[in-house]
Amino acid sequence: MKTIPKVGLAILILGIAYSCKQAEESENAALKADYATATTDSTSVISSSAAVQPKNSNRKFVRTADIKFKVKNVAKSTYAIENVTNKFGGFVTYTNLESHINEKSETRVSQDSILETTKFTVDNNITIRVPNTKLDTVIKSIAKEIDFLDSRLIKADDVTLQMLSNKLAQKRSESTEKRIANSIDTKGKKLNQVMDAEETLDTKKEANDNKTIENLSLNDQLNFSTLTINLYQRESIKHELYASEKSINNYRPNLGLQIWDSLKTGWFMLESIVAFIIQLWAIILIIFLGWMGYKKFLKK
């Protein structure tokens, strides 16, 4: 009769344990699904068609991107971003990882120990250059590090006409240079005329060089897009226990030793007074002789 209730109780306990396990597994699965959804959402939000190189297009775009987001750990995310950059043929031009102390306090936990509490935030500003055709791929790879997206700015500036204008200006400048050089060689006779023509030629060459450099800069921006990233993490707290310096009161002598030192100090003061009085023996002798003379002669 007593065995049946015990078996039922065991079955009931096993059933509760199984239910708890199933609930825990369901909760973990939900959390994983939420994380996967959040990651997918971050990737879809951060991606943009402006970062994609159009196929079979004659237009030339200079692409730049500015992204700010929160991460779990700034240092780890920085390493991941640098690895992604290298993987797709890019390079890092600037990175500045800093810890900012928001608050610091000290609490004495024992006579010789102090607990130091530091509240701080970590952030990093990174500038990377990646191949223009890989910008969207790099952005999607970086999206895996996002915990919360603050802002995303992607720009695609069409510089097709600007580059064409620079090339036409270069051709005109080169043609003008040739005509001026021929005039100097064939018609330049007077020194003043030659000097003026040479100055004009130098001006045209300088303008031509400037257009050449401008086109080279545009080509560099076309080939490698610039991506500026600002990442940060939530405020962290660090506790550090260290030994405290002993107070000077710990080295004070006990009361008996202080009384003994006071007695010795008083005795030394008495010795000093007696020694000082003995040093005045001549004055004391004169005063004594004067007093004796006063009593002996002036009273008579």
Rank of each mutant, 00 (worst) to 15 (best):
I13T: 09
A50E: 13
A10H: 04
S48K: 07
P54Y: 08
N56H: 10
L31Y: 12
A50C: 12
S49V: 12
D34F: 08
N56T: 09
A29M: 09
E24M: 10
I13D: 07
Y18A: 06
L31F: 04
D41W: 03
S48T: 08
C20Y: 11
V7D: 02
V7G: 07
A36G: 01
G15Y: 10
A33D: 14
V52E: 04
G8T: 03
A10R: 08
S49W: 06
C20V: 14
I11H: 05
A10C: 11
S26R: 13
S19V: 15
T40P: 04
E24N: 15
Y35I: 04
A29N: 10
K55M: 03
K6R: 05
V45F: 12
Y35K: 07
D41A: 10
V45Q: 15
I46T: 03
L9T: 02
L14A: 10
A10Y: 05
K21R: 12
L14N: 05
A30Q: 14
T43W: 08
Y18S: 04
K32H: 07
E27C: 00
P54S: 03
K32V: 02
A30T: 12
K32F: 01
S42L: 09
T40K: 15
A23P: 01
A29G: 09
Y35L: 12
K32T: 08
P5W: 06
S26K: 10
G8P: 00
T37H: 05
P54G: 00
Q53A: 11
A38Y: 03
V45N: 14
A50H: 02
L9M: 04
K32I: 04
S47Q: 14
N56L: 05
Y18L: 11
K6T: 03
C20S: 15
I16L: 00
G15K: 09
N28T: 02
A33E: 15
T40I: 13
I13C: 02
S42W: 00
G8H: 13
C20T: 05
A38S: 07
A51S: 07
E25F: 08
T43V: 13
Y18F: 01
A36Q: 00
I4S: 05
L31H: 09
A23F: 01
A50G: 14
N56K: 06
P5M: 06
